[in-house]
Simulated assay, not measured.
Amino acid sequence: MARPRRSDHNRQPLLEAGISLLSEQGYHGTGLKQILDRVKIPKGSFYHYFDSKEQFAAEVISHYIDQYLQQLKQATDLPERAPMDRLLAAIDLSLARLEQEGLTKGCMLGNLTAEIGGQSELCTQVMLQGWTLWQGWLTQQFEEAQQRKEVRQDLTAEQMARLFWDRWQGGLLHVKLKGSTEELRNDMELMLKVILR
């Protein structure tokens, strides 16, 4: 996505600032000046890396997805760990991240999907790629769990992955409203230990 450049010195800080600002304020609430002030670079440096705010947002989304999936795999993909334990570890990792950020941001991917999904073709394409990667990881866990007879057999792994994801995204809205992860943690554990077994 990014144009090749001789130096990527400021690119990484811009992407990190983008994750923070877009998570806190959304796409429309984040201005170019705020981004530049956060990283303390001139406007010309921004356009050295990105053609537009839209392209910047798309690359921030892609960076956010890559970061999250890398952390997820490091935390969960141990060969000796059962798939249901991997899913519980994914919940723990995600809730710990939310708690570190003060519970007000939610999932940047979910927030931006609600805000600009379908409005920006470029951003929508990147968000769909992120959903596909995350759903693929979830489906893989449920497929393995079905092979081990740890979850119900009357639904497909894809259906269970979608149920899991949809409940998770809905629960994130409650976390933002209530300022607590306890209900979401309990509901996700209930889904894994009772509803999908």
Rank of each mutant, 00 (worst) to 15 (best):
K40R: 14
G171W: 12
L112K: 07
R6S: 04
L32Q: 10
L36V: 03
P83V: 03
L192K: 05
M84G: 00
F142C: 07
Q147D: 07
I41V: 15
D37C: 02
L133S: 14
N10T: 06
K73N: 08
M191N: 03
L109N: 05
D77L: 09
K33N: 11
L196C: 11
P83Y: 07
A90N: 07
Q34W: 00
L173C: 04
G31K: 15
A75N: 11
S120Y: 10
T30K: 03
L196Y: 05
D154A: 06
Y68M: 12
Y49C: 12
R11F: 07
M108H: 02
E189D: 09
P4H: 10
T139I: 09
E54S: 11
E150A: 14
V60M: 08
L133T: 10
S120V: 09
K40D: 14
R3V: 15
H174D: 11
Q12V: 11
V60R: 07
K178M: 12
N186W: 01
A89M: 09
T132W: 04
E121W: 09
A157E: 08
F46R: 00
I61C: 13
L122T: 13
E54Y: 09
S23P: 14
S62Y: 05
L87A: 06
L173F: 08
V126T: 13
L173D: 13
L14N: 06
D92H: 08
T113N: 15
A145H: 05
R6N: 01
I195K: 11
Y49G: 07
Q25E: 03
V60G: 06
T76Q: 05
L21R: 03
Q12Y: 04
D8T: 15
M84K: 14
R86M: 03
T181Y: 01
E115K: 14
M160T: 05
G171E: 12
F56H: 12
Y47V: 00
K193W: 00
K53N: 09
Q25H: 12
L190I: 03
R197M: 07
G110E: 04
K105S: 02
T139G: 03
D85C: 01
